[in-house]
Design a protein around this nucleic acid. Structure first.
Lengths: 131, 131
DNA sequence: GTGGTTGCAAAGGCTTTGCAGGCAC
DNA sequence: GTGCCTGCAAAGCCTTTGCAACCAC
């Protein structure tokens, strides 16, 4: 249902998440950080705020099987590289051709809104650890 | 650690998942189906088998924030449409341009293996339900 | 003042795990 | 026979939710 009132807690969560650009934090990490500014904030409030911010379009959730939901506060249309070994998400910038119009023409009954492109592989750090 | 022995349970799970092409089932659904053939199979075994099949490359996990992991047994390189409202995954076939070489050249330190393209929007059924 | 928001704690859902017995090879 | 695999049940996450008090507007 989005955010209707800007409380101290929400201001703090927003600030933490926006300063974490490139880190893609999950709820637990945000909770830990926000507690430095608002020591008695509850984990439930963090979850509720992250959900509300997502609904309002400030955040995009990233999910990997079996892992906690991470949030991306950088909605400038960048892409992600994800490491198959450590699960980390890396932001990248790359030009994309028009992927939408072909599919839109072929599947007109589906109301196409966007497309997510996610690159997968092994990051430098994990590559160096084991072959 | 993959599959080393082909037991009755694993044969049954494999059969169920492969016959579910296009449905993208989760562990609970597979459990329900497999029980028709092997009534006393346990949910734990289903989870372990799905994990092993994934490791061996027979399945690809699909995840959406806050939902159970679904599995795709169709690894022919098709794409997915996902409905923002009901969460369903639909298989689509569409030509894709070369998305890899540009990124590979720009981020050589990352061992790029593949790219996932996921289309998002609202499916026909959900579109008809509410504007 | 009103009703959205919070903290707390309990509950919920999905998934993993320890263990003793069983079975594929 | 060996050791991988199974069923069972408990435990482990992550996340959601009910409720009374609180506070932004």
């Amino acid at each position: 249902m989005g955010i209707k009132r800007l409380t101290r807690q929400r201001r703090a969560v927003l600030e933490v998440v926006q300063h974490a650009k490139g880190y893609h934090p999950d709820a637990a990490w945000v909770y830990g950080e926000v507690r430095k500014a608002v020591p008695n904030i509850s984990l439930g409030t963090v979850y509720r705020t992250l959900e509300a911010l997502t609904e309002d379009g400030y955040l995009m959730p990233l999910s990997r099987p079996g892992e906690a939901i991470r949030y991306d506060a950088n909605l400038d249309g960048h892409l992600h590289l994800t490491c198959r070994k450590c699960g980390e998400f890396f932001d990248i910038v790359a030009p994309l051709p028009d992927l939408l119009s072909g599919v839109r023409a072929k599947y007109p009954e589906f109301e196409l809104e966007g497309v997510q492109v996610e690159y997968q592989g092994v990051c430098q750090k994990c590559k160096n650890v084991d072959g």
